[in-house]
Amino acid sequence: MSDSNTSDFTNPSSFILQGIPGLEEAHVWISIPFCTMYVIALLGNFTILFIVKREPSLHEPMYYFLCMLASTDLILSTSILPKTLSIFWFNYREIDFSACLTQMFFIHCFIAIESGIFTAMALDRYVAICYPLRHSTILTDPVVAKIGLAVVLRSGVLALPTPFLARRWPYCRTNIISHTHCEHIAVVKLACADTRLSSYYGLSVVFLVTGVDVFFITMSYAQILRAVFSLPTKEARIKTFGTCGSHLGAILAFYIPYLFSFLTHRFGHNVPLRFHILLGSVYLLVPPTLNPVIYGVRTRQIRDRLLRLLTQKGT
């Protein structure tokens, strides 16, 4: 397709990803932190998966959910970073129309999966603290598998209409997307039709996924705090609530950039476009990068296994 600002096509065979408009000269420098975060995400999440698989003592609901989170982070970061880096390094900006819609689906689907996994992990912490003697009988392996399947199905069903709606619009303005990846709103804005249905659906999914998940996480932690404050000693309260530290850190690393990006995009009309694009790219990279670091530092079992593994390799 021609790299032009106007065209008469209605069904483009490809789009042109512009990267970060106005910062083209700095693309190589911007790629350094992006590439660094991606490498950390790959190494960290593969390490989590390897350690949990290798250690039978970690075959528990908490670590099963952690493996689901690590797998989700790997897919989410890989769905955008290789293409983004090809833009920054080689100026390879063209992306097939179907590939663009596929990338759009993966982004929305796995963001929703990640949110659902955090909710499942909050449920695990709630059962472990409020019903410690029944934890193993409530969250059995089949129950954990069903929860994981439900999270994936919910996310897939809610994300699937997004690319289908985008495919049905006629594109007769331009094939240039002002972004580093096929972000839903950035693509839909190129259509020469009334795309309010796509906008309303995208907004509804945000509230159905993020709103519902944040509500259940909040309710879980309200019950956890109630149980913690009923413990007789300060040491017991600190020790018990400390088991939630990794989960709370990962939740903040996910929801704060996500909500900030969403609110800035929806209401920050005076915010420069380059800032929107940078923020929209970074919030997809921050959780995959920080999650393995948070769990590696805060979770003693994983930290001990990793140190033991490194010690054995060094001897």
Rank of each mutant, 00 (worst) to 15 (best):
I20M: 07
V28L: 14
L74T: 06
R266T: 14
S178L: 07
T264G: 13
A120V: 03
P272Q: 13
L17Q: 09
L133W: 04
T47Q: 09
I277E: 12
K53R: 13
R266I: 11
Y38S: 04
V188R: 02
Q18E: 15
A222L: 09
L165N: 07
H181D: 04
T174L: 03
T84L: 12
N11Y: 06
G242E: 06
L259N: 10
T289R: 10
V52Y: 07
I176W: 01
A193C: 07
P56R: 10
F118V: 01
F262E: 13
L49D: 06
V209K: 00
S204K: 01
A112W: 02
S136F: 00
K146D: 02
F275H: 11
F260M: 13
E183K: 02
F15M: 01
G245L: 10
F207Q: 09
A166I: 06
R54Q: 12
A186T: 02
T315F: 07
K189Y: 09
A122Q: 05
A145P: 00
E114I: 01
G19E: 06
T162A: 07
E60V: 07
G156S: 14
P292W: 10
R125D: 06
N175K: 03
I238F: 06
H247K: 00
V144K: 04
E24F: 01
T210C: 05
A99L: 13
F46Q: 06
T218N: 00
I30G: 06
L101W: 03
I87W: 09
Q301V: 04
F260V: 15
I113M: 14
I177C: 05
R303I: 03
H108E: 13
R167S: 12
F90K: 11
L101A: 08
P163T: 10
R167D: 13
S178H: 11
T240S: 15
T119Q: 10
V228M: 04
N5H: 13
L290M: 15
I185L: 12
G156W: 03
D96W: 01
S281H: 08
P12F: 08
S79H: 03
L231K: 09
Y255H: 12
L74Y: 06
L278P: 02
T47P: 00
V206C: 08
P288D: 10
Y283N: 14
A112L: 05
N270E: 15
I238N: 07
E183Q: 15
V52P: 03
L284N: 11
N270P: 00
I95Q: 12
V188E: 06
R308A: 14
G249L: 08
V152R: 04
Q18T: 04
V282C: 11
S86T: 14
P288Q: 09
V214Q: 05
S77L: 01
T289A: 15
S2E: 12
P288G: 12
T218V: 04
I294M: 07
A193K: 07
